[in-house]
Design a protein around this nucleic acid. Structure first.
Lengths: 140, 140
DNA sequence: CTTTGTGCAAACGATTTGCAGGATG
DNA sequence: CATCCTGCAAATCGTTTGCACAAAG
């Protein structure tokens, strides 16, 4: 617990970011979650018991964390911006029924041949999005 | 030209959609473009010479076409919704410099093994997004 | 003490909606 | 002629901004 908190502080500092309670809370919340929450969901979660951060601060903190490379945006639905504290390369599965997004480990989807791409394109990376129905939605 | 127009009319009708000048114009515009325009870009393009459609109509036409499966949304930038009349499965390349989106033919990126995915997930399809820098931006 | 972050409320831009009139099948 | 579509303007939603105050280094 304490170690985890220290690690977060160190991570923020290492990116040259000031450690404020609000920023800490946003990042810690995102690190603790396995879903891919929206800014609003994070805001609600943080303020559930006691008021922690204002709306504007959550939005700005997420921007700051994104610019620092600690957090990434996941855009799979129109008008919905989700956040993910997992910044190592990985893929996503999206349930077309409930909208849930599940991570897919990088090594679960290998073997993509990028060699056939048009020469001239400088490739930095890629990501696979798999669409389907999750087990929970198949039962219902 | 005329044949193309007839084909569009037939396609719309086959989906049970009424053929109105505005709806026709939106779909024809999208079919004629190789870029991935936003609703606003389509609107401007249509009204460039003479006023053709109102803003609301373009937005609703795009929704209708999407629901009919004639058009798809491409979501690669936060807050930007692009449209694509190519609804056959294909991948995308996005230039991180200029934001341009280029189609990648399905058969240019093969060999993804979906077998390793967690059992329980019913897969309907997948899509690869490649990030990098296009040739035009590499020169500059 | 200087810089950066926060909160609030107002501003913003993209998209949606309500409603009256008009076109389509 | 019943239904669906359009245009307009107002409403809405998520996100951003301006500014005064507070906190961090």
């Amino acid at each position: 617990m304490q170690q985890q908190a220290d690690r977060i502080v160190q991570t923020l500092k290492s990116k040259g970011l000031r450690v404020t309670p609000q920023r800490f809370a946003v990042y810690a919340n995102l690190l603790a979650r396995t879903d891919h929450p929206t800014a609003e969901q994070i805001l609600n979660d943080l303020n559930q018991n006691a008021p922690t951060s204002s709306q504007a601060t959550v939005y700005i903190s997420l921007q700051t964390l994104r610019d620092a490379g600690l957090v990434r945006e996941v855009l799979l639905e129109q008008g919905v911006c989700r956040y993910d504290a997992n910044v190592t390369p990985h893929h996503h599965f999206r349930c077309q029924c409930c909208g849930e997004i599940e991570d897919i480990a990088w090594n679960q989807l290998q073997g993509i041949e990028l060699q056939r791409l048009r020469p001239g394109l400088k490739v930095d990376g890629y990501e696979v999005t798999v669409y389907g129905v999750c087990d929970r939605c198949q039962v219902v």
